[in-house]
Amino acid sequence: MSLFPIMYLSGGTCVTLIMIGGGTMKMFFELVCNETCTVTTLTIIEWYLVFACIATMIAQLPNLNSIAGVSLVGAITAVSYCTLIWVLSVSKGRLDGVSYGPLDAKSDVATLFETLNALGIIAFAFRGHNLVLEIQGTMPSSIKHPSRLPMWKGVKFAYLIIAMCLFPLAIGGYWAYGNMMPVSNEGLLTAINRFHKRDTSNILLGMTSMLVVINCLSSFQIYAMPVFDNLEFRYTSALNRPCPRWLRVALRIFFGCLASFIAVALPFLPNLAGLIGAVALPITLAYPSFMWILIKKPLKFSAAWYLNWLLGVLGMLLSVSVVTGAIWSIVTKGLEVHFLKPE
């Protein structure tokens, strides 16, 4: 029950990273090349392929333990570019004519479902929950020193850093741009380049774009690792022997090619962020409670038994509600489907 949402969210995240990374590489090239450059830029599809090739070449480390350095690079670049973007947005002040009101009048039902869809998008932004058990599974654990203790400390610290990055980004960006925020994969980065390109140093804009690209390359390794592990596990389980190096490389190249194809074939995928995030919510909100009951086997009808069943059922209900809100938002707003035509 957990395998599908973990693989689904990891794969969807990698596809989204190809879109964001490839689009940002194109933006960086245009900043560096400027108006005086005579070199013809690549198409967005070609930039997707460039990013995917680089990410696939880097993605040759064997397991999650071996990518601690990659994770550190991703964390540093994430904190850096998030801080640069929101500080730059706030320092430039609000745009003339910015509005914070709704774009159109909505019924109470529409507001409720759009709020649920927004929760799905937030879940996708905090998408690291699908890696928690994968990471904990690689840590040494014993009765005296269970892995859950350092893991819990690490999770709290990690999500504190994520919140320190994302909340100032969301609040500062909304204050600066309001309803003038561009609707695109890059969000605030696109807004800065659109509204402040003339009054901001190209060096600062280029550095921000490059930090985003490096972060996407680092994140690709982390979110793709559960997929790599599962594919290699299937091989070792079926044949009862270690996965050879050549096959490991082939599997990762195959995944990189598949993710690139989906990024090109389904360019509207980021519009499904709410649904992608909502589908994996039970892993965080419901499964831990049910797992605790199965593993600890508390006395039936005891306080702990009731509490975990209550939390698990509420988590499932909230997950179903968020999925419903995401689907309702897609149905009512419509989805501009254009296959093999990324913008």
Rank of each mutant, 00 (worst) to 15 (best):
V183P: 00
V183C: 01
S184H: 00
G187V: 03
G187E: 06
G187K: 00
L188T: 03
L188G: 02
L189I: 07
T190H: 02
T190S: 03
T190N: 04
A191V: 06
A191C: 01
A191R: 01
I192T: 04
I192R: 02
R194S: 09
R194L: 08
R194P: 02
H196E: 13
H196D: 15
K197C: 04
R198P: 08
R198N: 15
D199M: 09
T200Q: 06
T200V: 07
N202Q: 11
N202P: 01
I203N: 03
L204E: 07
L204R: 05
L204V: 12
L205M: 08
L205E: 02
L205S: 03
G206V: 06
M207I: 14
M207R: 01
T208E: 04
T208C: 02
S209H: 01
S209R: 04
S209Q: 03
L211V: 10
V212H: 02
V212E: 07
V213C: 05
V213L: 09
N215S: 15
C216L: 09
C216M: 14
C216N: 04
L217G: 04
L217F: 04
S218I: 13
S219A: 15
S219R: 09
S219T: 13
S219Y: 02
F220C: 06
F220W: 08
I222Y: 03
Y223T: 15
Y223Q: 15
A224H: 02
A224Q: 05
A224F: 09
A224Y: 05
M225T: 05
V227M: 05
D229S: 14
N230S: 11
N230K: 10
N230W: 14
L231P: 00
L231D: 01
L231A: 09
F233E: 14
R234K: 12
Y235E: 08
T236V: 13
T236W: 10
T236R: 12
A238Y: 15
A238P: 00
A238E: 15
A238F: 15
L239V: 08
L239T: 07
L239W: 13
N240W: 13
N240F: 14
N240H: 15
R241A: 14
R241W: 06
C243R: 12
C243A: 13
P244A: 14
P244L: 11
P244M: 11
P244S: 04
L247F: 04
L247A: 08
L247P: 00
L247I: 08
R248F: 05
R248P: 07
V249S: 05
A250C: 10
A250Q: 08
A250S: 09
A250D: 05
L251K: 06
I253K: 02
I253D: 03
F254A: 12
F254P: 06
F254Q: 09
